[in-house]
């Protein structure tokens, strides 16, 4: 494998030295471009108390193209589908090399606080979120309790 760009090394070091509250990202033992990530559910959201595991991969041309990120822990959210794929503009056409692993993960955490059922990835979830928000939030809490709590 080609040498790891120093940008990736720098980002990894900074993630360790100045961790973002509620977020941890650790490179894999075998591949320094692959990160194991845990994002805690934001306070006052239906995901509060959950520990959500994600995987993040930095493609060959990173930072010219966006990291690939996916939820591994199941989550009930209108912008995250059954396979954990995330609908977020900065992971697609709004990517900029000025963004970093930490800002991407912060954006994902923010997405948990502010679901956007008008731009859905999980249609069934988004539909319920629009017609019966109360029930959708109950579902999200239940999924969080069932799948993402660490006890």
């Amino acid at each position: 494998m080609a040498a790891l760009p120093r940008r990736i090394i720098k980002e990894t070091q900074r993630l360790m030295q100045e961790p973002v509250p509620g977020i941890s990202a650790v490179p894999s033992e075998t591949n320094a471009r692959y990160f194991h990530v845990i994002v805690t559910g934001p306070e006052d959201s239906p995901f509060e108390g959950g520990l959500f595991k994600l995987e993040l991969f930095l493609p060959e041309d990173y930072p010219m193209s966006a990291p690939k990120v996916r939820f591994i822990t199941k989550i009930y959210h209108p912008n995250i589908d059954r396979l954990g794929r995330i609908c977020l503009d900065i992971l697609k056409d709004k990517w900029s090399p000025a963004l970093q692993i930490r800002t991407v993960l912060l954006s994902i955490q923010a997405l948990l606080s502010a679901p956007n059922p008008d731009d859905p990835l999980a249609n069934d979830v988004a539909e319920l979120w629009k017609v019966n928000e109360g029930e959708a939030i109950r579902n999200a809490k239940e999924w969080t309790r069932r799948y993402a709590m660490d006890n």
């Binding site: 845990i38 060959e60 996916r70 822990t73 199941k74 059954r82 396979l83 794929r85 799948y147 993402a148």
Partner: peptide, 29 residues
């Protein structure tokens, strides 16, 4: 982290379990 993952796997809390959708997006190149 792998301990946490193992606990979530044991509880069926991991994406794709029991699903019959396409394989998950895991990009390597």
């Amino acid at each position: 982290m792998s301990a946490l993952l193992a606990r979530q796997v044991a509880r069926g809390g991991v994406v794709g379990m029991g699903d019959n959708g396409p394989p998950p997006l895991t990009i390597t190149s």
